[in-house]
C-alpha cells in the first residue's frame, strides 16, 4: 500500500514534470533565437540552471554535514547523502551539455585547450563522486558519517572556485551573463525563459532530493532492524 508520504512525493514528481514541460515550451517556443549562435544557444537555459541546482545541492551537503558534526543529526547526514547524489547528476548534466555546446561555438578540443571552468568543474565532480564512494565503501556507522561530513564540507571549497573561475583566470568560457556587473546581459524574453527554467529545474532538484531522502531513510530503518535482530540473536545465544 502506498504511504501518504510516498503519495506526496508522487504528486511533487508530477508537479516537477509539469514544470519541466512548461520550461521546454519557454526554451523552444517562446525564447527568441540568438542572432550570433543560432539554435544551439538554447542549450544555455538548462546548462546554466543545472549548474545552479548542483551548487544548491552541494550547499545542502554542507548544511547536512555541519548538522551532523554539530549535533550528531542523523537526518542531517541523510540529507547530505541524498543531496550529494542529486548534485552529482546535475553537475554531470551541466558538464556534458557545456561540452556539446562548446564544440560548434569554439570548435573546442579539451585535449588542446585548457579551460578554467571545465577543469574546476571536473575537480568538483571528482570530489563529490569521491564523497559517494566514501559513503558506499566505508563501514556504516558514526565514523563513516563523520568522515563523509568532513569530505562534503571541505569539497564545497571548489564551488566558489568553479563560479569565479571565469573571472580569476583568462579562459575560453564566457564571463557572467545573469549576474553580470550592471544587470543581466540578456534580452527580457530570454531572461524570462531562463527564470522559468530555473524554477522548474530547482523544483525537479528538490523533488529528487526529497525522493532520495526517503530512500535513505528506509535504508537506515532496514539497517537498524538488521542490527537489532543480530543483537537479539547474540543475546539469546549468550543467555543459553
Amino acid at each position: 500500500m502506498t504511504e501518504p508520504e510516498d503519495r506526496r512525493l508522487y504528486a511533487l514528481t508530477a508537479l516537477a514534470l509539469a514544470g519541466m514541460l512548461v520550461a521546454a515550451g519557454m526554451i523552444f517556443l517562446y525564447a527568441p533565437q540568438d542572432a550570433l549562435q543560432g539554435p544551439v544557444q538554447r542549450i544555455f537555459y538548462l546548462h546554466v540552471n543545472s549548474a545552479i541546482a548542483a551548487y544548491i545541492c552541494f550547499g545542502m551537503v554542507v548544511a547536512g554535514g555541519v548538522a551532523y558534526l554539530w549535533k550528531e543529526s542523523v537526518r542531517g547526514d541523510r540529507l547530505a547523502r541524498a543531496a550529494a547524489t542529486v548534485g552529482l547528476v546535475f553537475t554531470t548534466n551541466a558538464f556534458v551539455m557545456g561540452m556539446i555546446w562548446a564544440k560548434p561555438i569554439w570548435n573546442w578540443d579539451p585535449s588542446k585547450t585548457w579551460d578554467a571552468r571545465v577543469t574546476s568543474t571536473a575537480v568538483l565532480w571528482v570530489v563529490y563522486a569521491g564523497y559517494l564512494l566514501v559513503r558506499r565503501f566505508a563501514t556504516p556507522g558514526r565514523p563513516a558519517m563523520r568522515l563523509a561530513a568532513v569530505v562534503g564540507i571541505v569539497g564545497f571549497v571548489d564551488v566558489p572556485v568553479v563560479h569565479f573561475s571565469v573571472q580569476w583566470w583568462r579562459t575560453l568560457h564566457p564571463g557572467p551573463v545573469i549576474d553580470a556587473a550592471g544587470g543581466p546581459a540578456l534580452p527580457p524574453e530570454m531572461l524570462l525563459a531562463f527564470m522559468v527554467t530555473m524554477v522548474a529545474v530547482l523544483l525537479l532538484a528538490g523533488t529528487l532530493v526529497a525522493i532520495r531522502y526517503r530512500i535513505e531513510a528506509r535504508r537506515d530503518e532496514l539497517e537498524d532492524r538488521a542490527v537489532a535482530a543480530q543483537l537479539e540473536l547474540a543475546a539469546s545465544h549468550g543467555s543459553r
Binding site: 502506498t2 504511504e3 510516498d6 512525493l9 508522487y10 514528481t13 539554435p39 544551439v40 538554447r42 542549450i43 538548462l46 546548462h47 543545472s50 542529486v86 547528476v89 554531470t92 548534466n93 556534458v96 551539455m97 556539446i100 555546446w101 564544440k103 560548434p104 525537479l204 523533488t207 529528487l208 525522493i211 532520495r212 526517503r214 530512500i215 528506509r218 535504508r219 532496514l222
Partner: peptide
Amino acid sequence: MSYLIEAYAFAVMLLGGFLVYSLVQLRRRS
C-alpha cells in the same frame, strides 16, 4: 541544430533516467 538535439537528448536521458531509477527504488522499498 544537431548539437542542440544531442544536448537535450542527453539531459532528458540523464535526468529522466535518474528520476525513474529513484522512483523504482522508492517503490521497491515501500
